[in-house]
């Protein structure tokens, strides 16, 4: 496995594997789940996992294809924001499962998922703004001792 092979072969394979697994789990699990609320929540959950892993594959690809660049501190800030956004669909999902008569909670889940997808896509499409060139770094001598 070389960096070139990662970019041209491995990343597409991982994308394909991810979607295949997601489709497989979705279709197979839907066969045995009778509860419509659970079916809806499972769909959302599977798509959520796909978002997260797609981002991880994207980050691997960018990291691999740009070895001479580092990322600035703002990348960590964006990741921290995602860290706080991610629990929201889980919380809303649990609330919908607890109160299934409140369909509004499910409808709320859809734009929340859209928001999460926007965050990941925006991060991916703007990551070039967070590149930092590698510079030689010098540590000071101990002086005046």
């Amino acid at each position: 496995m070389t960096p070139e092979a990662i970019h041209t072969k491995v990343v597409p394979s991982l994308q394909a594997a991810l979607w295949t697994i997601a489709l497989f789990i979705g279709t197979v699990s839907f066969q045995s789940i009778g509860d419509p609320v659970l079916v809806k929540l499972m769909s959302v959950f599977i798509i959520f996992l796909v978002f997260v892993w797609e981002s991880a594959i994207m980050f691997l690809d960018i990291k691999n294809a740009n070895p001479g660049k580092n990322f600035d501190g703002e990348v960590l800030g964006i990741n921290s924001r995602l860290f706080f956004i991610i629990p929201i669909p889980f919380i809303v999902g649990v609330l919908y499962y607890t109160y299934p008569e409140l369909n509004i909670l499910f409808y709320l889940l859809l734009p929340i998922m859209g928001w999460i997808k926007w965050e990941y896509s925006s991060f991916a499409n703007n990551i070039h703004l967070h590149f930092v060139d590698i510079k030689p770094t010098f540590i000071p001598n101990k002086i005046n001792d």
Binding site: M1, T2, P3, I6, V10, V11, S13, L14, A17, A56, I57, L60, K63, N64, P67, G68, N70, I134
Partner: peptide, 18 residues
């Protein structure tokens, strides 16, 4: 497993290039 191996190789390559 594939992701883990690819990530390891990518990180090692980045270190060498930098």
């Amino acid at each position: 497993w594939t992701y883990y191996r690819a990530n390891k190789i990518a990180n090692r390559n980045r270190k060498e290039v930098q």
